[in-house]
């Protein structure tokens, strides 16, 4: 199925806006994680602006789709999507990481409407997603659970405990993304502690696996649409991504995992993003 040019253009523009928000938020906060937020921007955009059945007016609706950002350090990408979907005012984004803010350094479900699970300690999101998917099935609800994992995160053993369980319980109402940007704090994942071959591992664990370009909006949409048709298996979409995507001097630089742009770098990054806006 081809997605209309118009829809793709709208989504690409939304992803660009999210990337701008990420840069503004982190430039203002002075701490946080730009690289992995930027690499996940297109996936999160597709979910929040196309697939998730959610109602910002009723964030606790029991029938809603769930999204868990298991790589919780990419909080800015989630916050921007939530703000743009109307969960709270976009100005609030600039309170990120400040005392008293609902926008904690890592997502906090008790503080911020729209956050379905607090995350931050890596490796825990998929287990929670399994629980939500099991509950949905038990209650005969048709909501879906989406979860986004980092590739470095798959070094956590709990991820594989959870991966085993998703397949064992045939959770076909669960769709996971792997943000495969190939970098972690100390360098390339293959040098620090290789979890590869990742797609093969998920397949071996009993998942339906697709590998896509995680910055090609059309591929993202098609992969999710295909995942929705899979029966009897959880679905993993391995998204090949670029850490820092969209800001030239941040791309493929491990150093931008957890350091933030100064004022000059913030302006330069925003100028680049604006220039690339459709």
């Amino acid at each position: 199925m081809e997605n209309s040019e118009k829809e793709l253009a709208v989504l690409k523009a939304a992803a660009n806006e999210i990337r701008q928000d990420i840069i503004r938020m982190l430039g203002t906060a002075g701490s946080g994680h730009p690289g992995g937020s930027l690499s996940a921007a297109d996936i999160v955009t597709a979910l929040y602006f196309k697939f998730l059945r959610i109602d910002p007016e009723n964030p606790k609706n029991p029938d809603r789709d769930r999204f868990i950002l298991s790589k919780g350090h990419a909080a800015p990408v989630l916050y921007s999507a939530l703000a743009q979907r109307g969960y709270f005012k976009r100005e609030e984004l600039l309170t990120l990481r400040k005392l008293g803010s609902r926008l904690q350094g890592h997502p906090d479900m008790k503080k911020l409407p729209g956050v379905d699970m607090s995350t931050g300690s890596l490796g825990q999101g998929l287990s929670a997603a399994n629980g939500m998917a099991l509950a949905g099935r038990l209650d005969s609800k048709d909501y879906r659970v989406y979860v986004l994992l980092g590739d470095g995160e798959t070094q956590e053993g709990q991820v594989w405990e959870a991966a085993m369980a998703s397949a064992h319980y045939r959770l076909d109402n669960l769709t996971a993304f792997l943000d495969h940007n190939r970098l972690q704090i100390d360098g390339p994942i293959e040098e620090v502690m290789s979890p590869e071959p990742l797609a093969d591992k998920w397949r071996a664990f009993g998942w339906d696996v697709q590998v896509i370009d995680g910055h090609d909006m059309n591929q993202i949409l098609q992969a999710v649409e295909r995942a929705l048709t899979v029966k009897g298996k959880p679905q993993m979409i391995v998204a090949e991504t670029v850490k820092g995507k969209g800001v030239s001097f941040m791309e493929n630089q491990a150093g931008w995992h957890g350091s933030t742009p100064n004022q000059e770098q913030t302006e330069k990054a925003l100028a680049e993003l604006l220039a690339n806006k459709l």
Partner: peptide, 25 residues
């Protein structure tokens, strides 16, 4: 139907319980 054996995987046991609880259980 309301019992889930998670195997010898206690981290996932607690995380899954958290997810079930977050969905109202």
């Amino acid at each position: 139907d309301r019992f889930f054996n998670m195997g010898v995987a206690e981290q996932n046991l607690m995380g899954t319980a958290a997810g079930l609880a977050a969905a109202g259980k």
